[in-house]
Design a protein around this nucleic acid. Structure first.
Lengths: 200, 200
DNA sequence: GCGCGACTGTCATATCGCTGTCATATTTTC
DNA sequence: GAAAATATGACAGCGATATGACAGTCGCGC
């Protein structure tokens, strides 16, 4: 649960933390909610995030504008907690298409997002949160070299200030977790960064 | 590193020298920093330049105004050098989208920039960074002889002082990496330099 | 509210590969 | 055959990456 009381902050947080869903009030200080929605939908990093818009009763115009700006649903104030929850669920359900839930498997190494688990030939692997995300990114973007910068953006999130060398450390932790059986998949590309590859 | 102590000069320099990033103090003589930011963002030539705003502690209003004026990030004084550097990096990272490049293939020899890899009929080849760049240059500039000087400029970069003979050594290393299957592609042009060619 | 363990980011240090240069061998040219 | 150009092998310095350790945070269970 994250909160922001103005559009700037909200924007920054959205980029930074990649929330599953955004609940947006039409009335916000600074940039209007609608403008924020538009912005979020425009940027690739945040375009996929579902947005629910809160509008005051009867403001039909707002609803239309909101939906046009890219909101996925709207709720009219006042609303019951029950209604809110129902809509949240509905939007989340729609927003979590099989794509993200699909497990990936390579040479006996399997990452299953639905159970949030990594297994090697059936046996569970010890793996930290960051390493999990790193591995997930790699397994869904194989055979491609990424710089430390790009990995920071993709795995850590956009507005995060971390030393590039930190990536090295997590790569090492990931390799350690993968063990001898699979660590050859995580390859160093000297002078560039790292790569996940089946070959070689 | 360029400096200006007022908005006019800064504006001029920005236009003139096209810096990668602008660090802007909120407090400036003449036009305020915020006004300058707005101006820079309005003009096409300077709109893409990332701007980081320096604001005094606690002036929340300034931050909001700054971001609305188009600043990409802000730092509150006082700040640590570490933080400054981190933010600079992060902003630059976001501002420099990676170029998209096509793979090149010749007679089963394939160089793929996205995976940063060289393969011979599917099998990965061992190749160092410099040899990789050298090969990339050659494959994108085939059938043409280059002097050692030109290669140094193109592959090593303009302002490097390196012996011309060094090129010979890297040519050799490249040939070695390519192995018997492909080294005939790298040809010596006696008295001139080298050439990448399919023909004899 | 507190203590504990897990996780993160950073640093210092160890390693390893890459680089440029040289001395020497080989090839080409005339 | 001599001179010039290029190829080759060796090497030491340097820079990038790997590793191990550490302190700060955070969430959780008590």
């Amino acid at each position: 649960m994250l909160e922001a009381d103005n559009a700037q902050t909200a924007h920054a947080i959205a980029l930074d933390r990649k929330p599953d869903l955004i609940l947006l009030d039409w009335m916000m200080p600074g940039t209007s909610g609608i403008e924020l929605a538009r912005r979020l939908k425009r940027e690739e990093a945040t375009a996929e995030m579902p947005i629910i818009l809160l509008t005051a009763k009867g403001e039909e115009d707002n609803k239309v504008q909101g939906l046009e700006a890219g909101a996925d649903d709207y709720i009219t104030k006042p609303f019951s907690p029950r209604e809110l929850v129902a809509r949240l669920k509905a939007v989340l359900r729609r927003a979590t298409p099989p794509g993200i839930e699909e497990a990936v498997e390579v040479e006996g190494l399997r990452l299953d997002p639905s159970s949030h688990r990594v297994t090697s030939h059936g046996g569970a692997l010890e793996i930290g949160p960051t390493e999990y995300r790193l591995l997930q990114f790699f397994m869904t973007h194989q055979e491609r070299a990424y710089t430390r910068s790009q990995l920071l953006d993709q795995v850590w999130g956009g507005n995060v200030y971390v030393e590039e060398r930190t990536v090295d450390v997590h790569i090492r932790r990931l390799r350690k977790s993968l063990g001898d059986g699979h660590q050859h998949l995580i390859q160093t590309v000297r002078g560039t960064g790292y790569r996940f590859s089946i070959r070689e």
